[in-house]
Design a protein around this nucleic acid. Structure first.
Ligand SMILES: [Mn+2]
Ligand SMILES: [Mn+2]
Ligand SMILES: [Zn+2]
Ligand SMILES: [Zn+2]
Lengths: 143, 143
DNA sequence: TAGCTAAATGCAACTAAGTTGCAAGTATTT
DNA sequence: AAATACTTGCAACTTAGTTGCATTTAGCTA
């Protein structure tokens, strides 16, 4: 991991009053670098030989979520994907697109969706999530 | 389960060329009756004493999904929720609202959302899913 | 109606994502 | 440098969903 990324990660950690430990710098630096949702397993693999323990990665991510640095980006499988909580408003994150052919996920950061309106009085819609699936350019049969 | 429901379930099964077995009639009848997403566990509990085996419920639901009778309505937890595949178009199902206070889920069947537009050439958006969370009328602090 | 067969079921064992408890280590404060 | 609250790693656990296989059954045919 680049020194610049490490510095950025440490700064971020301090800004939310989290201790600047090695596992946290590594995980946060990675999320800063890849800029797309990753699972615990993917994080572990990418950090390679001296990746922190699985439990530490989960707890690290949990602390990031609590601090508001990271979101769980719910995809359609059974595993959680985590990404930085930028490109989001209070009410909604950007849509996520997953290719049904190759499985790749893309962040549609430029796409904004109108908020759903409640069908009846009394509901308060605090947050909205949009998931998309289909073919990515690589797998598009018409291309 | 009511006789009418059973008859309806059997009819539906025949219409998609699935064998009319007891487990299938029971599970489909239940989904017809409750009209909201249920997990395998909830289905099993509601069917009570002589509910089919867990594996049978999963395989039953899988056959319904293959036949297009049922959708997996992905909610925010780690478990799958299944519901009848009506109130859906080819491109999107109705939004689902889950209350962050009491956990109840409501189907916003009347609410339609515009489809997201691809941010760049090449993506084909086949399906869109919208999840909402907030306070339900029961838990709304302003009510 | 009885028999045939492919499809469906039930059970036990398994997989894998995420959790919990606890002893040992360490970042920050003083 | 010492104190201590926070963090880490490991082992054991939980739980949703899967797999393999022997047994049963729905729907068909004779
Ligand atoms: Mn994203
Ligand atoms: Mn619904
Ligand atoms: Zn693709
Ligand atoms: Zn509620």
């Amino acid at each position: 991991m680049g020194t610049a990324l490490k510095r950025k990660a440490k700064k971020l950690l301090s800004s939310v009053k989290l201790r600047r430990t090695n596992p946290r710098v590594a995980v946060l630096g990675l999320l800063l670098a890849v800029d797309k949702p990753l699972t615990q397993d993917q994080i572990s693999t990418r950090l390679g030989r001296n990746a922190p323990d699985k439990v530490t990665i989960y707890r690290t991510l949990e602390s990031f979520v609590r601090a508001g640095l990271v979101h769980r980006a719910f995809l359609q499988e059974r595993v959680w994907h985590f990404e930085l909580a930028d490109d989001c408003t209070e009410q909604q994150c950007h849509p996520h697109f997953t290719c049904t052919s190759c499985g790749d996920t893309h962040c549609f950061t430029g796409v904004t969706m109108p908020m759903a309106r409640s069908p009846e009085k009394g509901f308060v819609i605090g947050h909205q999530r949009v998931q998309l699936e289909g073919f990515c350019p690589k797998c598009n049969p018409n291309l």
